[in-house]
Write a protein that binds this DNA or RNA. Structure first.
Length: 795
RNA sequence: GCCGAGGUGGCGGAAUGGUAGACGCGUAGGUCUCAAAAACCUAUGAGGUCACACUCGUGAGGGUUCGAAUCCCUCCCUCGGCACCA
């Protein structure tokens, strides 16, 4: 045996051998399946970062463990290769996105292999390849035929820097999630996916899946289902009516005005001659503002009067109708009843424009004085006053009662609203899958023919953004369309949002080479659902919501049995820089995992990242701490020279198996590693038998696959340790027990007793007598006795 | 503002009603060495003591319990998501 642990030699040797022997390729028809998936990466030019390694190591340990447990494990890797960064890089550098992307993929593959990750490379996919995106386009066409994709003229989010529209989910705080440019609203004709049709099921089925609570909450909030009522108000001396949606009709005895969003179709129509120009100017000014400008400006309320009023049927009082930009056209009906006494925004608006404020709720503070300060505005709880039939009721009971009342009188009807909008998937960019639509000479859209799939993305395109889709100017792209469809026909020139590529890739892994279907029904039935999915927490509402949506659609259409894609989801926590800040080029604190591989080896890096702490928490990098796992591996290496010839597996090692098994199943890798370190400390005092040592190596092998494989082969095994069965464990039964002695609940020591005596109260009492005497001072004491564990003397 | 997750030594973190600080890093002292590094051994929450004893200690305060880091209530702070959502 070599005397020193040489990580570089061992790791390259075994990586080459595993690849040659195709050790990790998955059977086509599994008997006992387990699908373990990482969120496939965007192949960025800067290569693998430590966060990738964290998530990938976790699923790798889990995959290796499940293989040893006898499962057929599907553990694939691929590339989310379309998208803006490659295109933006191309615009700056002139290097074609296909070229830079393929180069980045080569780097990723090289680096991932250097980590000893056990992917089945025969199933590798990339979303930018025609053999992949032909099925992305097929799905688009399928959704179109099912009326789940439609084209509509609507106000959309426009990023003037990326020169493309964005989905609602890609707008963060009023700005583009990529470049942080303020987003503006623009009227455009675009393609939408009718995800709202599935809102209720996306909400209800969250209970079926084992996901982090915070992620489920994120989806619940994003879907934003709210029960309420639309009340229909007649506008005085006109033919107009205004629908106002509210979730709080209980306070409507206090309603004193109505506000319309500037985009509301009635805003201008309603205005009397006297006020029309004011309203017109206000609407124009609002249109010029970015979303962020509308939100910021200190939330100062602005607005104009329309000159008209509506009647509050509950009080028979007039409510002047105003227009203000604090009301959003996208939410509810774009019109709001103002209840300034019990809504802070309405209060601010009323104060700004001198509108009356009425109190209709008394809160727990008992304040029943007129409301003149914002602190007096009760929103959440209280008792109704000045509210006719509701007086004296709790607001929640009042809400139910008044809804019934309004419906009965025919003034309105119960309606549920959602925060979720239909998903806008058109992008005016080059590096994406072309939308498979052709327009006839009248401009009417048609899905492309079967034979026209895939609609190829040409390489030779001027992709500098102009606001017009780059494909517009491509002769090659439009070249054959008239031959196929007829004179005057032309192709859709927008491409699809990359989330269209990534919302179905986990289906493709089941059957990645299929050129007849996106995946065969048998393969989908065999592998779905994904049993464990690991990835970053930033995808709460984007990828994870879209993927759930598409799964439900395909389920409803009979393609797949399951209606949820990811049964168990976990996030890896962000790894911060050594300075405690987010890793960023700007701070110069980015850690390259390959540096650690060079210095300590992949096994050390894997152990280090898993030992940092719980998988899902945010934790800072600390290069010094890598010494711990590295020393551990050196000591493991040395230990093999000291093992004895005995053939029995000792109790401590069997116990380790039980504990590590449990820890892996719960993804508690940091604790599992700590326990292996503990037992190695014990081995160094009393060396293990050869049989025990083999068990230890097997338990360590998912975590540190290279060193364990090398040591295994040095024990004269001809086959890989990664083909071994996971060893059987057994809980250790302690023969001698340290019984805890407490006096008045305070720990005062332990007493060593045999298993039998420790369960016998009188034996424990007599054994502990001398010890507790001085604390009890001769006083009588009653005892609390937990057999085999603890005795507590209480005086 | 609303929702969610958290707060434990010098540091990363263990412990989910029963010996708080496992395991690791770091630090100090020692062994080896001409020396250093590496490796190994010992110690390492605070106070206290020659050493024991003992006291205090899991963000703050209160409660439940024989016994609380763990369960309940009030508050403070940190992180994440959503947000002029009616």
């Amino acid at each position: 045996m070599t005397s020193r642990y040489d990580h570089a030699a061992i790791e390259t040797k075994w990586q080459a051998r595993w690849e040659k022997e195709r050790l990790y390729e998955t059977s086509v028809s599994p008997k006992k399946k387990c699908y373990i998936l990482d969120m496939f990466p965007y192949p960025s030019g800067s290569g693998l970062h430590v966060g990738h390694v964290e998530g990938y190591t976790a699923t790798d340990i889990y995959s290796r463990f499940q293989r040893m447990q006898g499962y057929d494990v599907l553990h694939p890797m691929g590339w989310d290769a379309f998208g803006l960064p490659a295109e933006n890089f191309a615009i700056k550098s002139g290097i074609h996105p296909r070229k830079s992307t393929d180069k980045a993929i080569a780097t990723f593959i090289h680096q991932i292999k250097a980590m000893g990750l056990s992917y089945d490379w025969s199933r590798e996919i990339g979303t930018h390849g025609p053999e992949y995106y032909t099925w992305t386009q097929w799905l688009f066409r399928f959704l179109y035929k099912k009326d789940l994709i439609y084209r509509a003229h609507a106000p959309v989010n426009w990023c003037s820097s990326c020169k493309t529209v964005l989905a609602n989910e890609q707008v963060v705080g009023g700005a583009c999630e990529r470049c942080e440019t303020d987003v503006i609203q623009k009227e455009m004709e675009q393609w939408f996916v009718r995800i709202t049709k599935y809102a209720d099921r996306l909400l209800a089925d969250l209970h079926k899946i084992d996901w982090p609570e915070s992620t489920k909450m994120g989806q619940r909030n994003w879907i934003g289902k709210k029960e309420g009522i639309i009340i229909n108000y007649k506008v005085q001396s006109s033919k107009f009516k205004i629908d106002c949606w509210t979730s709080r009709p209980d306070t409507n005895f206090g309603a004193t005005f109505i506000v319309l969003a500037p985009e509301h179709p009635l805003a201008l129509k309603l205005a009397t001659d006297q006020y029309r120009s004011d309203v017109e100017i206000y609407i124009e000014q609002t249109a010029k503002k970015t979303q962020r400008e509308r939100i910021s400006e200190g939330r100062k309320k602005t607005g104009v009067f329309t000159g008209r009023s509506a009647i509050n049927e509950l009080t028979n009082e007039e409510m002047p109708i105003w227009v203000s930009d604090f009301v959003l056209m996208e939410f509810g009906t774009g019109a709001v009843v103002g209840v300034p006494g019990h809504d802070k925004r309405d209060f601010e608006f009323a104060v700004t424009f001198g509108l009356p404020v009425k109190r209709v709720v008394v809160g727990s503070d008992g304040d029943n004085l007129p409301i003149t300060r914002i602190e007096q505005v009760q929103e959440e709880s209280g008792t109704m006053v000045n509210s006719g039939l509701l007086n004296g009721m709790d607001i929640h009971a009042a809400k139910a009662k008044i809804m019934d009342h309004i419906v009965e009188k025919g003034w309105g009807k119960r309606t549920t609203t959602y925060h979720l909008r239909d998903w806008l998937i058109s992008r005016q960019r080059y590096w994406g899958a072309p939308i498979p639509i052709v327009y006839d000479p009248d401009g009417k859209p048609h899905p492309v023919n079967d034979v026209d799939l895939p609609v190829l993305l040409p390489d030779n395109v001027e992709f500098v953004p102009t606001g017009q889709s780059p494909l517009t100017t491509s002769k090659e792209f439009q070249g054959d369309v008239e031959t196929i469809y007829g004179k005057g026909w032309r192709r859709e020139v927008d491409t699809m949002d990359t989330f269209m590529d990534s919302n179905w890739y986990f289906f493709r892994f089941c059957d990645p080479k299929n050129n007849k279907e996106f995946a065969s029904k048998e393969s989908l039935r065999a592998w779905l659902p994904v049993d464990l999915y690991v990835g970053g927490a930033e995808h709460t509402v984007l990828h994870l919501l879209y993927a759930r949506f598409l799964t439900k659609v395909l389920h409803d259409e009979g393609f797949i049995d399951v209606d949820e894609p990811f049964m168990k989801l976990r996030h890896q926590g962000t790894i911060l820089g050594e300075d405690g800040r987010k890793m960023s080029k700007r701070f110069g604190n980015v850690v390259d995992p390959m540096d650690a591989v060079d210095k300590y080896g992949a096994d050390t890096l894997r152990l280090y990242e898993m030992f940092m702490g719980p998988l899902d928490i945010m934790k800072p990098w600390n290069a010094r701490n890598m010494n711990g796992p590295n020393r551990f591996l050196h000591r493991v290496w040395a230990m093999q020279g000291r093992i004895t010839d005995k053939t029995m597996v000792d109790a401590r090692t069997k116990h380790l198996v039980v504990e590590v098994t449990d820890d892996i199943l719960n993804l508690r890798f940091n604790v599992a590693i700590a326990k292996m370190m503990t037992i190695l400390n014990a081995y160094e005092v009393t060396p293990p038998s050869k049989a025990s040592w083999k068990v230890f190596l097997k338990v360590l092998s998912p975590f540190a696959p290279h060193i364990t494989e090398e040591l295994w082969s040095q024990l004269e095994h001809m086959t890989s340790i990664h083909k071994e069965k996971w060893p059987k464990g057994e809980k250790m039964v302690e023969e001698i027990i340290n019984v805890i002695i407490q006096v008045n609940g305070k720990f005062r020591g332990t007493v060593e007793l045999s298993k039998e005596k420790a369960s016998d109260q009188s034996a424990v009492e007599s054994a502990s007598n001398s010890m507790v005497e001085k604390y009890l001072d001769g006083k009588a004491a009653k005892t609390i006795f937990i057999p085999g564990k603890l005795i507590n003397f209480v005086s």
